[in-house]
Lab assay of single mutants.
Amino acid sequence: QIGDLVNIDLDLEIVQSLQHGHGGWTDGMFETLTTTGTVCGIDEDHDIVVQYPSGNRWTFNPAVL
């Protein structure tokens, strides 16, 4: 839910696979593998929007978090 702290604890290849159809994966997202983020929103597809200390916001398949 919004305000929750979240981490990704999966291998890169699994995360990339799960992201298909959920915003995809870009090289800029590598920070998300090692950094705790804060849930800042849930979109119309029930994907999770997470903000990181860098100021970046990324959209994830809920199965990734």
Rank of each mutant, 00 (worst) to 15 (best):
Q1T: 13
Q1C: 13
I2R: 09
I2D: 04
G3M: 02
G3C: 12
G3L: 00
G3D: 03
G3S: 03
G3E: 01
G3F: 02
G3N: 04
G3R: 02
D4K: 08
D4A: 13
D4T: 07
D4Y: 15
D4G: 08
D4W: 01
D4C: 12
L5E: 15
L5V: 08
L5N: 12
L5F: 12
L5M: 13
L5I: 13
L5W: 10
V6F: 03
V6A: 05
V6L: 02
V6R: 03
V6M: 08
V6S: 01
V6G: 08
V6N: 02
V6Q: 05
N7G: 05
N7R: 11
N7S: 14
I8L: 09
I8S: 12
I8V: 07
I8G: 03
I8Q: 01
L10P: 04
L10D: 14
L10F: 08
L10M: 14
L10T: 09
L10Q: 11
L10N: 11
D11P: 15
D11N: 08
D11I: 03
D11C: 02
D11M: 07
D11G: 07
D11T: 09
L12Y: 09
L12C: 06
L12G: 06
L12R: 08
L12F: 12
L12Q: 10
E13S: 10
E13F: 05
E13Y: 08
E13G: 12
E13R: 12
I14E: 14
I14T: 14
I14A: 13
I14H: 11
I14Q: 14
I14G: 07
I14K: 11
I14S: 14
I14C: 12
I14R: 10
V15M: 09
V15P: 02
V15D: 06
V15Q: 03
V15E: 05
V15T: 07
Q16M: 11
Q16E: 11
S17D: 13
S17W: 14
S17P: 04
S17M: 14
S17T: 12
S17R: 15
L18W: 07
L18G: 05
L18F: 11
L18M: 12
L18C: 08
L18N: 01
L18E: 07
L18A: 03
Q19S: 02
Q19H: 06
Q19N: 10
Q19V: 03
Q19C: 04
Q19R: 00
Q19A: 02
H20D: 05
H20N: 15
H20A: 14
H20M: 14
H20Y: 10
G21E: 08
G21Q: 13
G21D: 11
G21I: 01
G21L: 08
G21F: 13
G21Y: 09
H22K: 07
H22V: 00
H22N: 08
H22M: 05
H22W: 01
H22C: 04
G23K: 04
G23S: 04
G23E: 00
G24S: 05
G24Q: 05
G24F: 02
G24H: 12
G24A: 06
G24W: 05
G24D: 08
W25R: 06
W25K: 06
W25V: 05
W25P: 08
W25F: 09
T26L: 07
T26F: 11
T26W: 09
D27Y: 05
D27M: 07
D27L: 06
D27A: 07
D27P: 11
D27K: 10
D27N: 10
D27H: 11
G28C: 13
G28D: 14
G28M: 08
G28H: 10
G28T: 10
G28L: 13
G28Q: 14
G28V: 09
M29W: 00
M29V: 05
M29E: 04
M29G: 03
F30M: 12
F30K: 14
F30H: 12
F30V: 15
F30T: 09
F30P: 02
F30N: 15
F30Y: 15
F30I: 15
E31C: 02
E31R: 04
E31L: 00
E31A: 00
E31V: 00
T32I: 07
T32W: 01
T32Q: 01
T32K: 02
T32E: 07
L33T: 03
L33F: 11
L33R: 06
L33A: 05
L33Q: 10
L33K: 03
T34C: 13
T34M: 11
T34H: 10
T34A: 13
T34I: 10
T34S: 15
T34Q: 07
T35N: 04
T35C: 10
T35L: 09
T35R: 11
T35M: 08
T35P: 00
T35A: 08
T35E: 13
T36W: 07
T36P: 11
T36F: 08
G37Y: 09
G37R: 00
G37E: 01
G37M: 05
G37L: 00
G37T: 01
T38P: 03
T38E: 13
T38K: 13
V39I: 12
V39R: 02
V39S: 03
V39T: 01
C40L: 08
C40S: 07
C40V: 15
C40G: 07
C40A: 10
G41F: 12
G41C: 12
G41M: 10
G41E: 14
G41T: 05
G41L: 06
G41H: 14
G41N: 04
G41K: 12
I42D: 04
I42N: 12
I42T: 10
I42L: 09
I42M: 11
I42E: 12
D43P: 06
D43T: 10
D43S: 15
D43H: 11
D43A: 09
D43M: 07
E44S: 15
E44G: 13
E44T: 12
E44R: 14
E44M: 11
E44V: 13
D45S: 14
D45W: 05
D45K: 14
D45P: 04
D45G: 12
D45V: 07
D45A: 10
D45R: 15
H46T: 07
H46S: 12
H46N: 15
D47V: 14
I48P: 01
I48M: 11
I48K: 05
I48D: 01
I48G: 01
V49Q: 10
V49C: 13
V49R: 04
V49N: 03
V49T: 09
V50L: 01
V50M: 07
V50G: 02
Q51A: 13
Q51V: 10
Q51S: 11
Q51K: 11
Q51G: 07
Y52D: 02
Y52C: 12
Y52V: 01
Y52I: 00
P53G: 04
P53V: 05
P53C: 01
P53M: 00
P53D: 05
P53N: 08
P53E: 10
S54M: 00
S54G: 05
S54R: 02
S54Q: 03
G55V: 04
G55R: 05
G55K: 02
G55W: 02
G55A: 00
N56L: 02
N56G: 03
N56S: 08
N56I: 05
R57N: 09
R57E: 09
R57V: 11
R57F: 07
R57W: 05
R57K: 15
R57T: 13
R57H: 10
R57L: 11
W58G: 02
W58H: 10
W58I: 15
W58V: 00
W58K: 06
W58E: 01
W58L: 01
T59V: 13
T59K: 15
T59M: 04
F60I: 08
F60T: 04
F60K: 02
F60E: 01
F60L: 14
F60N: 13
N61P: 00
N61G: 00
N61D: 02
N61M: 03
P62R: 06
A63E: 15
A63Y: 06
A63H: 10
A63K: 14
V64E: 04
V64F: 02
V64G: 01
V64L: 11
V64P: 00
L65Y: 08
L65G: 05
L65M: 08
L65V: 12
